[in-house]
């Protein structure tokens, strides 16, 4: 497993170090931070973010994105409330919500892979669409009184460990194994780093991406179910804005927004760091607005920092190997001139 060790070096290790450092400092400075009760709360807070971050990581690794996840969560919650209100049993409602999420994901996937539209544009569209549908389904009502056994299990714990930890851990292991130790995972990185090379290697780019969106929709719907049970309240506006936290956590975890690079272990660190920072600030009575500011700043830092680190590293590497190797950027001679964009009108217009 030396391979695994290697993956922990670099950005992942840095994030984990920052996380540990932050937890120690916050434990000393912020009262009530380092308590078992607070730790359970933190798990409950980070559960939906971590859950959605798992498929989101896979999607971002392929160079795409899904911004509709929070709206899928909201629509799932609204449908859950409407059906529960209509007298359906919870054992039927939950599978229906998961299938609904898969369908919503499939719609995203179809637009992106079938029609070749940019995922950013498509999922901004469905972000609005799915949230709108949630309000169509439930209006601004709130449905409560879900079965106690379910809600208690979601917020409960046994032997001091929150119940939610176990399913989260299982899903983390499943997604981590898929991403880092299967042919599918390898092909996700390949299509993220070079979509042409992936196609020329026989990787089914469109099909794979489509199914990623399906899975992402189903997982977001599952997050909606958990959210509803946790607060025992189904509302159309549940989870509004959560997609930002998810994307911030994934990028903070060292996944490249351009695709092709990242680890799920880094993302776990990113999610926990984000949750710890927000939790500590909240305990320190910092306002919700300030929390938003911090999330935004972390998002920017998470995009800047890996690039800065990478730039520094390659600058150092360049200095080390002088003279540079035969420049790989130089095109071999027989390229047709027409493919050379250099003398474009944009250049000429000076």
């Amino acid at each position: 497993m030396s391979d695994l060790m290697k993956r922990f070096t670099g950005w992942d290790a840095a994030i984990l170090a920052v996380l540990v450092l932050f937890v120690i400092v916050a434990g000393l400075v912020v009262p009530d931070f380092a308590t078992g009760r607070n730790a359970s709360f933190m798990v409950l807070d980070l559960a939906p973010v971590l859950l959605i971050a798992l498929p989101m990581t896979l999607i971002i690794v392929t160079g795409e994105i899904d911004l509709s996840v929070a709206s899928t969560l909201g629509l799932s919650s609204a449908v859950m409330g409407a059906l529960w209100d209509g007298g359906m049993s919870i054992e039927v409602i939950i599978p229906i919500c998961l299938v609904l999420g898969a369908v919503l994901g499939a719609v995203n996937g179809l637009f992106i892979t079938g029609f070749g539209l940019p995922s950013l544009a498509v999922t901004i569209g469905t972000l609005a669409l799915y949230r709108g549908l949630a309000f169509v389904v439930l209006g601004d009502r709130a449905v409560a009184q879900f079965p106690g056994s379910y809600t208690e299990w979601v917020i409960g714990s046994s032997a001091g460990i929150p119940n939610l930890v176990w399913p989260l851990l299982v899903l983390l292991l499943v997604f981590g194994t898929v991403l880092h130790a299967t042919p599918l995972g390898r092909s996700l990185f390949t299509m993220g780093a070079g979509v042409d090379a992936a196609r020329f290697s026989g990787i089914r780019v469109a099909r794979t991406k489509f199914w990623l969106y399906v899975v992402c929709g189903a997982v977001a719907a599952l997050a909606g179910v958990l959210w509803t049970l946790r607060y025992s309240s189904a509302r159309a506006d549940n989870g509004t804005g959560l997609e930002l936290a998810v994307v911030a956590a994934v990028l903070l975890g060292g996944v490249s927004i351009f695709g092709g690079r990242g680890t799920l272990w880094g993302v776990l660190g990113g999610v926990m760091l984000l949750a710890a920072v927000q939790n500590a600030l909240r305990l320190a009575d910092v306002s919700n607005e300030a929390l938003q500011v911090v999330t935004g700043l972390l998002l920017i830092v998470s995009v800047l920092a890996p690039n800065a680190v990478g730039a520094i590293r390659s600058a150092v590497a360049r200095r080390r190997r002088r003279p540079p190797p035969p420049a790989p950027a130089a095109p071999p001679e027989p390229l047709p001139v027409s493919s050379d964009p250099s003398p474009s009108p944009a250049v000429r217009s000076s």
Binding site: F189, T190, A193, G194, D196, A197, G260, R261, P328
Partner: peptide, 9 residues
């Protein structure tokens, strides 16, 4: 460089 290889991999 485009079709044969993923250069950064």
């Amino acid at each position: 460089r485009q079709q044969g290889l993923v250069l950064e991999a």
